[in-house]
Design a protein around this nucleic acid. Structure first.
Lengths: 139, 139
DNA sequence: TCCTACATTGGACATTGTCTAAGTCAAGAA
DNA sequence: TTCTTGACTTAGACAATGTCCAATGTAGGA
């Protein structure tokens, strides 16, 4: 993650305690947190950090391409720090947990030209849904 | 759409003016409306219909499998009446318009067994994103 | 026609996200 | 090192979307 901070500095980012903490939280686990979860965890290390700053910082990380924004259910967006590897998501339909997965082949090629309706298609996301082992065991 | 009302009656639905109007709105165009857009259009035909009823009815249609809920951007969910045909979505990243598209092959097969992490995978959604012809022309 | 369980209503409330004005501070300049 | 300045942060108001509840209304069976 120190690479991340380094990359950001090179792009003219002013390096503040708040931004460092947000970056560290994202780097922590392999879970994808919501903005509020990021805020809660950031607060543990830097109690006075504000919600607005967390939202700002996440938005900046997304537009710099360092983090991906994932909205799987129309509830809170989740933030995926694994932006530099091409991957898709596997979501538990009960608890909302997200895992990164890797696919065979390129999903873009599954969309035939006549089905593109003149769109300039630039991106494709594939989301698998099901019960995670934990939720399946307690159902 | 009268088939839809018929199917719902068979399942014990009480047929009210409000539910009929919501169903008609969904059946109208081939666009996928947000709940508030459905409410706005329903209000034109039945001015006293309440927001809560629109939300309730949409929720019921979704759990009956008659309508699909699509959340493409973490903003308002959109409702897709085309639930009985297997299809995926093409979304304009500028204006949010959604088109239904049909794919070659089964996207489920692109997820190798070791990438399933013990999940009982039951569903897959594929979303293509890009600029629609209109937005591309004015960019 | 009458009953009653189901449906609707309006408004309060919850969650998630955005905006702004005022204060603060990182980092380059001197 | 200290100064300066514009980028950054803050608190809280506000906006958008969605949920819940108690009171009221009504579809459809008896």
């Amino acid at each position: 993650m120190s690479d991340l901070l380094e990359r950001l500095r090179e792009r003219g980012w002013r390096l503040t305690a708040q931004r460092r903490v947000v970056a560290e939280v994202l780097d922590g686990d392999h879970v994808h947190y919501t903005a509020d979860e990021v805020h809660a965890r950031a607060t543990e290390r830097l109690p006075e950090i504000s919600r607005a700053t967390v939202y700002n910082t996440l938005g900046e990380l997304v537009s710099l391409g360092e983090v991906l924004e994932v909205s799987t259910d129309g509830r809170a967006k989740r933030y995926d720090p694994n932006a530099h590897h091409d991957h898709q998501h596997l979501v538990c339909s009960r608890c909302g947990t997200i895992r990164d997965v890797h696919l065979h082949g390129d999903p873009l090629s599954a969309l035939p030209e006549p089905e593109r309706f003149g769109f300039q298609v630039s991106e494709v996301t594939v989301t698998y849904r099901g019960l995670c082992p934990t939720c399946a065991a307690t159902s």
